[in-house]
Amino acid sequence: MTKLSVRDVRKSFTGKSGRTDVLGGLTFDIRDGDFVSIIGPSGCGKSTVFNIIAGLLEPDSGSLVYEGALVEGLRGRVGYMMQKDLLLPWRTVLDNVVLGLELRGVPRKIAVEEAREHLSTYGLAGFEDSYPQALSGGMRQRVALIRTLIVNPDLLLLDEPFSALDYQTRLYLEGVLMEAVENFRKTVVLVTHDIDEAVALSKRVIVLSGRPAGVKAIYDIELAERTPIGARSDPRFAGYFHALCGELDIQTKRGEAA
């Protein structure tokens, strides 16, 4: 079943150097329970797509259809994670985790109880009263992930959430994410520049063309295992990786597409 349809979305920005068409008629579907990665050349407007789905930007034209109904955006219904952990520095770990629940008016006592449960599930028990700056990058991003999951969003929007982390921490957090996605049967849209991550985690990868961006290709990823390490060990992994590098025209030393 189609969860979200993006239909012919166009967006341009007007700046000092004139008008820039960022999205030139973008159309794709996201199915229920899907894990879709959006990749594309840098500056192609990946984050713009993301902000339009989240309801933070209005498209110039085109529409979003969510579960069969035309919507403006999915404000309040999405989980949102970025490369920056976006933890509020003035709130403790616990208070950061409850932010989404608090905004929805969930009573403090219930919110805190739930937050404590989540924190201990993800190995952060004992850090409830710490401030974010006392935590390592990996821990902070884990807190951000918990904050995203605790509001039980219909759709997870992830904008390069792990790209600032070292490789081991990233593998670990990818695992945590995949487990949570399986357990809670979430639909995920991951915006990334990391082809390797896109192949390892996704059921489908949407490749965007350069500006103004449109859908260049869609790949169904079929790997035996969708765990960070399992997927990367699959013999078919390299094939997808090469194909996607080719789509993005990444040049090798010899000057040919990878």
Partner: peptide, 26 residues
């Protein structure tokens, strides 16, 4: 970005003000 996060989580303008702007300005 913090304001975007709050908005994506469904915050109203007054919630953004109270929960992001005021503590960030403190």
């Amino acid at each position: 970005d913090l304001q975007r996060l709050a908005l994506a989580l469904g915050a109203t303008k007054s919630q953004v003000f109270r929960k992001i702007i005021v503590p960030a300005s403190l």
